[in-house]
Amino acid sequence: MRSEQQLTIMNKSLEAIGLIVIHASHLEREIESLCTFFIDRFPRSECPNTAGTRKKIQWMQKCIKQLNTNQLIDLSKKLDKANNLLSKRNDIVHGQIFISDLPDQLICINERASSKQKRLMSSELFKLAEDINISHTNLSFGTVSKLVCAIYEEHA
């Protein structure tokens, strides 16, 4: 039987994981939107709409390198950050989560992750959700579209 404290920890952690999932879905949609800027100049056949987000980021990174402009260095860094955050999300979402005996900790076991077993505090989960939301904001259509449009005007 679980104690009241364990249930509270689990509920807080589930709330944080829910926020991670929601914010990550918005981030993934933003990444797909960014892909559309590159379609006119680069064949999308190697990265169809159905490709995973990691593949889309790799494709955009390749496009950015081919454009060979310093104006897109910031975008490249933001895509790297998004990829890193989504990888952390995957480790949690695709893992098995258990309540730890230690206060305010969960154990996440994921055989596919680089670290097979990891202890997580709910505060870390909330921080990941916040970081993913910030990454989404940093890649938002309004700010990046101006940058990408400038590149197309320069290389048209």
Rank of each mutant, 00 (worst) to 15 (best):
137 T>R: 12
101 D>H: 08
5 Q>G: 01
100 S>W: 01
154 E>M: 12
141 F>V: 07
151 I>D: 04
26 H>D: 14
88 K>N: 12
146 K>I: 11
130 E>W: 07
43 P>A: 05
135 S>L: 04
121 M>V: 08
120 L>N: 00
29 R>T: 14
32 E>M: 09
141 F>H: 15
53 T>D: 01
80 D>E: 14
113 A>V: 05
67 L>G: 05
134 I>V: 12
142 G>T: 12
55 K>H: 14
104 D>V: 03
97 I>F: 02
151 I>G: 03
87 S>M: 08
44 R>F: 09
129 A>W: 01
22 I>C: 03
24 A>D: 06
37 F>C: 05
28 E>F: 03
26 H>M: 11
29 R>S: 13
28 E>V: 04
11 N>Q: 14
80 D>T: 10
110 N>Q: 05
108 C>D: 03
96 Q>I: 13
62 K>E: 11
14 L>E: 03
21 V>D: 10
20 I>V: 15
109 I>S: 09
134 I>H: 06
14 L>S: 09
60 M>E: 02
9 I>E: 10
108 C>M: 06
4 E>V: 15
40 D>P: 04
146 K>A: 08
139 L>A: 04
118 K>V: 15
28 E>G: 04
35 C>S: 12
156 A>W: 08
4 E>W: 06
128 L>M: 06
8 T>E: 13
37 F>V: 01
80 D>Q: 11
23 H>L: 00
55 K>M: 06
106 L>T: 03
67 L>F: 14
140 S>V: 02
73 I>H: 08
149 C>H: 14
81 K>H: 13
106 L>Y: 01
146 K>V: 11
73 I>P: 00
19 L>C: 10
54 R>S: 14
46 E>Y: 05
106 L>R: 04
13 S>W: 01
11 N>E: 15
69 T>C: 07
20 I>L: 05
40 D>G: 15
11 N>T: 15
101 D>T: 12
124 E>M: 07
67 L>T: 06
155 H>Q: 14
86 L>V: 04
110 N>C: 05
135 S>Q: 01
114 S>I: 09
10 M>K: 08
70 N>Y: 09
114 S>L: 12
2 R>L: 15
4 E>F: 11
79 L>Y: 00
38 F>W: 04
140 S>W: 05
10 M>L: 15
24 A>T: 05
99 I>Q: 05
93 V>E: 04
114 S>M: 07
129 A>L: 04
52 G>L: 09
107 I>A: 02
50 T>V: 11
41 R>S: 14
56 K>Y: 01
61 Q>D: 07
147 L>A: 06
150 A>R: 13
31 I>G: 02
65 K>C: 04
43 P>N: 08
26 H>W: 07
116 K>S: 08
94 H>I: 08
79 L>N: 02
140 S>G: 03
78 K>M: 08
145 S>H: 11
48 P>A: 09
114 S>E: 13
5 Q>L: 10
88 K>E: 14
101 D>V: 07
132 I>S: 02
138 N>Y: 06
96 Q>E: 08
12 K>S: 10
123 S>K: 12
23 H>D: 09
36 T>F: 08
23 H>T: 11
48 P>T: 09
88 K>D: 13
17 I>G: 04
134 I>D: 08
153 E>P: 00
141 F>P: 00
2 R>W: 05
